[in-house]
């Protein structure tokens, strides 16, 4: 009797091409599709002196600073509010949980411009809550705060989604054992649950931050496009592109954003590789 293991294994590529060979062409095509525009951008930015000169423009630096400050602030608020929400969604049952779960996803599938309009209707000076805030002397629309709110609205769901999956993947037995070892629920959450979901936390945070950094549609409607106040990098690219600077101005800004995004990805990989849990 021949067992399965005794049977000769069809050697790769002898009679028919292996799946890897078959899939290589479309994979290469996709790789090229992503790489070509980025390479072209970097190439032009390096070669074109006009681009290099604009990197030091005060307006470019203002936009970059605003982008970094607002997106980081967005991430901080998203972490503060998103971690508890993700934990509740992952670990507990409560009335209306399905609804909350769906609502959290909604901004991810919503066009950002719709989010901008909705935010304006809610928090604009004559908006549903805006009028109340207005009477208290708080103005949100067309301020830097509005930039953060717009970014938060569209980017926080990425963090919550990722973290929820991360928390769900942590076996509750760890938390129970921690409790029997005398460790309080909050400390257990910090030392076990959050620590074991670190890949999801870091991944979700990066996604959230990058999404905030690239936010355009909601910001332009809810916060407007005011240099130094609400004009973040993506808005600055649009303005530059439509101004007399044209493509050259847009390129300078675009290449900076590209560099920032790339550095972030590398950092993410390094952080995760440095994790004891994932060492091989």
């Amino acid at each position: 009797m021949t067992s399965l293991a005794d049977r000769p294994v069809a050697s790769e590529g002898r009679t028919s091409p292996s799946l890897a060979t078959l899939f290589a062409l479309p994979a290469l095509l996709f790789g090229a599709f992503v790489l070509v525009p980025l390479a072209a951008l970097v190439y032009r930015a390096v070669r074109d002196e006009g681009v290099a000169g604009r990197l030091t423009d005060a307006s470019v630096q203002t936009a970059l600073r605003l982008s970094l400050v607002t997106s980081t602030l967005t991430l901080a608020i998203a972490l503060l509010l998103g971690i508890p929400l993700a934990y509740l969604l992952a670990r507990t049952q409560f009335p209306g949980k399905q609804l909350v779960d769906t609502l959290v996803d909604l901004p991810m599938v919503l066009p950002p411009t719709v989010a901008g309009v909705a935010l304006l209707v809610a928090f604009g000076r004559r908006g549903v809550f805006g009028s109340v805030l207005d009477r208290l002397g708080i103005e949100l629309a067309f301020t830097t705060s509005a930039v953060v709110l717009a970014q938060l609205f569209v980017s926080a769901p990425f963090l919550v989604r990722s973290l929820k999956a991360g928390f769900q993947a942590v076996d509750p037995t760890y938390e129970q054992v921690s409790a029997t070892l005398g460790v309080s629920p909050l400390r257990t959450f910090w030392r076990i649950t959050l620590r074991l979901s670190r890949p999801a936390l870091v991944g979700g945070a990066v996604l959230c931050w990058v999404r905030a950094l690239s936010e355009l549609g909601a910001t332009i409607i809810f916060a407007g496009n005011f240099e130094g106040r609400t004009q973040t990098m993506p808005l600055a690219i649009i303005s530059a592109f439509e101004s007399s600077q044209g493509l050259a101005g847009a390129m300078a800004l675009a290449v900076i954003l590209l560099a920032v995004a790339f550095v972030l990805l590398v950092v993410l990989r390094l952080v995760l590789r440095g994790d004891r849990l994932f060492e091989v």
């Binding site: 076996d171 037995t173 760890y174 129970q176 054992v177 921690s178 029997t180 076990i192 620590r195 074991l196 004891r276 849990l277």
Partner: peptide, 13 residues
């Protein structure tokens, strides 16, 4: 109580 669960649940990190 000292409690050893069936799957041990040693903290992997």
């Amino acid at each position: 109580v000292g409690y050893v669960v069936q799957q041990l649940a040693l903290f992997p990190h």
